[in-house]
Amino acid sequence: MEVHLYEQAEELREVGAAVALSANSVRHLQARLNLTEPLAAAAADVDGLVFRSGRTGDVVGRVLSRADHHQRCGAPYYGIHRADLQAILLGALAGPDAGSGVEGLHLKKRLVDIDDSGARARLHFADGSSAEADLVIGADGARSTVRRLLLGYDDALYSGSSAWRGIVPADKLDPLPDPEAIQFWMGPGGHLLHYPIGNGDQNFFLVQRTPEPWSASSWVTPVEREGEHLTMFAEWHPAIVQMISAVPVTERWALFHRPPLEWWSKGRVTLLGDAAHAMVPHHGQGANQSIEDAIVLADCLLADSDWEGPRTL
């Protein structure tokens, strides 16, 4: 298969903060892409999941220690910076002899339309260029253009929650209980999720339940005032207050999801990952489900006799 990747960004750079990779994706990255060593070098091997009271810090429950996760799930649970994961995947795509360029990767290509009426699908980009393919895979995220073109409308639904995020260096935190675990602190009106990444920093995701409709035109907006995220969490456990106060927080993220689709393919076009099934991040499965999708789709394409011969994706 001749595969081409079209990306709207002008350069590949870190977007967001960190990502949690659970065993259902890690084992594929290890076995299918041979990324065991680079993942282990760049990620934190998380030591279980701990649920705590947001106000008192009392432990509500524990799930799967590091050793349990390795044994029962067949692979580690990793916390990794998105930039590091992207670099590892790009290295796997490029190969050791790629030099400065990556064959088949096209930047500054923002999709605006797909014409699937001819012998091949034609993609039209904002810069006036176009490309043809036998199969188009829309892996363009929660705000997928490909999904909107397939459905004819935008079906995003506000979840009733918004969030702030940040990465805090370990030297800005007093000793945390269970610093090597992924931790979920729960309280009235919100929760905090945090976990370590490869260099020992803590990635946090602070969620406030705000059921009133999201009024902003963008899913991500600048904070209205400095420290706005501290207001409702001021009476929470001191470790939480310290963490969310340690670094500047400049953006607020509305959490959207999309209703399940009865179908996610039409003609020569299909969807993958968040474009197919965008979910809120509370279970840390968005990236993991996308990786599983890619593995399953690759297997289906290789096994399907209807796709014999050279193909361009």
Rank of each mutant, 00 (worst) to 15 (best):
V220G: 04
I295Y: 13
P281M: 13
Q242C: 07
P169E: 05
A121Y: 02
F184P: 00
L12Q: 05
M232V: 15
A98R: 03
E7L: 10
L29T: 11
S162T: 12
A17I: 09
G79R: 03
H257I: 00
K109C: 13
R268M: 09
E37Q: 13
L21N: 05
V146C: 07
R110G: 00
K108R: 15
W253M: 04
T210F: 07
W164A: 12
G284C: 13
A298W: 05
F184I: 02
S144K: 12
S53A: 07
L193M: 13
P238G: 04
P177V: 02
D68F: 01
W253Q: 05
D45R: 03
P310C: 12
A41K: 13
R110D: 00
V220C: 15
M232F: 15
M232T: 15
A181K: 02
G138I: 08
R82M: 07
I114V: 10
V247R: 07
R52T: 04
P238D: 05
L135R: 01
V63C: 03
L35I: 08
A181H: 03
T221I: 15
G104C: 10
L297W: 02
D68L: 03
P96Y: 02
S162N: 11
S162K: 15
G95D: 04
T270H: 00
R32A: 14
Y6T: 06
M232W: 14
H81E: 08
E251A: 06
W164F: 15
N24Y: 11
S25E: 08
E180L: 08
L313C: 11
P248Q: 12
R110A: 14
D47C: 00
Q71G: 11
K109T: 11
K109L: 06
P38D: 08
S159I: 06
I167F: 06
T56H: 03
E14L: 12
T210G: 05
S65R: 04
A41F: 04
H191I: 06
D58K: 03
V46E: 04
T231N: 13
E308R: 15
I182L: 10
S265P: 00
G91K: 13
G91M: 10
E292H: 02
V26M: 11
R122V: 15
A246K: 05
T250E: 13
